[in-house]
Design a protein around this nucleic acid. Sequence first.
DNA 1: ACTGATTGTGCAAGCGGTTGCACGACATGG
DNA 2: CCATGTCGTGCAACCGCTTGCACAATCAGT
Lengths: 332, 332
Amino acid sequence: MAVTIQDVARLAGVNSSTVSRVINGKATITDETKAKVYAAMQELDYHPNSLARSLASGSSGAIGVIVDARDAEAFANEFFSRSLFAIEKEAQARGYHVIIANGAQSRGETIENLMKEHKVDGLILPPTTVRPALMKTIGQFPYVVLGTPDTMRSEACWVDNNNEQGAELAVKHLLERGYLKIAYLGGREKRGFTKRRVRGYEKNAGGQRMVLPTDGTAEEACTVAREILSAADHPDGFVCNDNLAAFGLLKACRSCGLRIPDDIGIVAFDNYPLAEYTDPPLTIVDIDTAMLGEQTAQLLFRRIKDSRIGNQQIMLSATLVARASTERVANV
Amino acid sequence: MAVTIQDVARLAGVNSSTVSRVINGKATITDETKAKVYAAMQELDYHPNSLARSLASGSSGAIGVIVDARDAEAFANEFFSRSLFAIEKEAQARGYHVIIANGAQSRGETIENLMKEHKVDGLILPPTTVRPALMKTIGQFPYVVLGTPDTMRSEACWVDNNNEQGAELAVKHLLERGYLKIAYLGGREKRGFTKRRVRGYEKNAGGQRMVLPTDGTAEEACTVAREILSAADHPDGFVCNDNLAAFGLLKACRSCGLRIPDDIGIVAFDNYPLAEYTDPPLTIVDIDTAMLGEQTAQLLFRRIKDSRIGNQQIMLSATLVARASTERVANV
DNA sequence: ACTGATTGTGCAAGCGGTTGCACGACATGG
DNA sequence: CCATGTCGTGCAACCGCTTGCACAATCAGT
């Protein structure tokens, strides 16, 4: 049916192995022969069958990106999408394909299959999948975790942004701007990255600790915030775990008649395009998701190429982008 | 190195072809033999090499999803992400993998390679890739366009939501609520889906036509809206091309001292989680992206299974979700 | 009991490439 | 001028699985 390497060889008057070598540049070939082969390929519109090539060469030419998504939200979140974009870019530059797979429903099965059935040469995993059981089977295989795993933190191979340091930036900024009583709003407290952000918050909040976890929705953030803000000595500064929490908080402030940034200061995590279009625009802790994806992919490809490269941990730092939601003149 | 089908066959005391048949259920096999084979597979922790399997069987077991993204935004947009989630779900249910690839930089090359190198059994394409040249090569191959192509609209195979009807809903809703002068804000007018939305707007706006295209950013929407709103007889109803436009418009209204929904009514396209958390919450035209992805994937798999299934066009309808941004009592 | 259909399994030829080994041709050095 | 290298290409095995064909064994029908 399709045109094979044999057809090309026949037309070019050489052996198929020569054609293979021309394609892969794996040996010294006369310019004359090369020309004949190229001409034949052109004429027949030859495209090597990547399946056959993979089988013979032992590498699939693809990497797998596992997502842990029970619902569409995780797929849709900016963090994942933007990282994925960067990952795909790195992969394409190296002639690799990206297979995405949802690992949520199938506890590890998907991941192991991708690996054991030779479908991918390497894997990018979400932190939740890092468990001793899985690591035992996957340990020898090229993988990188995108995020900090809760367990096996110092053994696993991962790339993450520094959530703890990000939260520190946020708290310091609020204090500098003259806010006195700082709370942390949003996020499921059990989640790894929330825990680390909370830790960064605690370290710098000067002994105070007011952590207000939610179920992750804007709605609950609003409810929780409203309750807190109705108390007499409510906080005047908030670090929000994400944009949803910030939106809920904004709504709560409106309904309580509190003004931002005069009465309340707000810093939110994540660089969300719309965070600049709230009223007022939100000061944010910027997570460079593109860089994150890029670094993760680069590390993975390094490990695919050279299996001796051991596990390493890369921590990228976050930066603060000040906007109007904390624009209070200090110590008024 | 890895355990092969031969190893299993040897241990089970049968021929490798029997093992193959057991795995694929392609023939009648004694229960006894089956049991032996399963036991051997278990004992050796056998995983069939999908590469070899694909080569022999002629199908890769993967579908490709092409994204047309110059920047990360397209990847990050809800539309794409949520559809992708649904597509992956359908694929996983059928034992297929999903390969994503950015087709933006490489005009068609990526797409053709995916197909011609037998890397995928089918493709989901963005509307922008539908060109006669590409269709000539891809026409015989199972594909579905996610969105309405501008050219070859009636020949190509696609699934889309009804943007025209969605815009009609929006305009009718505004008129019913007593808004009189309706404008369309946002979107690059050249883009296919924007064009169709504008058409739906025009049909129902009762002869008036005020279309305000932008470069797609919230910033420009804000600038454009501010200018329009400063005129004496400015519009009192807006259909926004997306949430970014709506956010820009909200900001413009604030700065002009116009109140929503009393002075201005707003309907925005797309079901964005935060659209409920603006001030006031936005009335939206809900595009069911999950359904869109699902239908697209299902159609693709039907075509993969049965190559005689011709090109078809599926149009899903949009629904309106009324919220406070249009909550004006009619004819006050 | 004999023939023909059915069932269960083995054999071996692919699927379309890659790659170690071999070998002839030509260049180089003593 | 012969021994020794290097270069360019062909040969054939192999990657691990699928599948058409063959064949022995079992079963049903008359």
